[in-house]
Design a protein around this nucleic acid. Sequence first.
DNA 1: CGGTTATGGTCAT
DNA 2: TGACCCTAACCGC
Length: 268
Amino acid sequence: MPEGHVIHRLASDIVDTFAGHRIASSSPQGRFAGARLLDGNVLESAEAWGKHLFVGFASTAAEVHIHLGIYGTMRLAEGEPEVVGQVRWRVTDGVSTVDLRGPNTCALLDPAEVAAVIDRLGPDPLRPDADAQKFIDRVLRSRSTIATLLMDQSVIAGTGNIYRAEVLFRLGIDPLTPGRSLGRERAEAIWQDTVELMRIGRQRGRIDTVRPEHDPEAMGRPPRKDDHGGEVYVYRRQNQPCWICGGPILTNTIAGRNLFWCPVCQAA
DNA sequence: CGGTTATGGTCAT
DNA sequence: TGACCCTAACCGC
């Protein structure tokens, strides 16, 4: 269940583990027809763009396009463990194995198709070539709320529901503020904070958004255990007291996704 | 053990 | 806006 930081980490893990190695490729579940076409190829590259992952091979220009969606996982293991459950794609070099399960997308794409996927994506805060200005301009022109914009992958690629909630809380921004009402300074701050938080997420492999001065230990509070493994201010903390103002964190379903915010710290 | 939920996205209406 | 995709973890019984 990944936001972009997980995909970037995965891409570098795959490169570290398999790049330059001849691999066996299969679809134990049978639902990835392209798997056998790649069997015996040399894996060459793995690259993330937002939540999309592209895996390249030495003897073909085609790439495997993976999107994990909300359920998907891609996990590395040592050796060649027995296949358990539904594995869409397995890659192994005999020393290590990676299993892909439950992806939204797993398909072999030609270069034009890869370009078309990337073309639909906005700048990715974790990519060194990201065009921050493109994000800022798009936000400042939009009548959509900033909560919606931060989930729109054509506006910013890789941000998900946790980073959306946490960045807006950290900056004290009402999630329902229209993009065009934010002003350039706050739009720039949103980009910058997202970059910083997602870099930390990529490095640690978990989402931590709580500033040092609010750390549970520093505040004399017991550490909390969240599914995502890190410490956050508002994500899935509805009905709990806000760490800053003490008022209740609220939640509401907006456009089919759960939004979490503090109505006091993020007042309009 | 069954029901619920999830860090996502597409498509039809 | 809702159905659907598809898997695993979690919760209450």
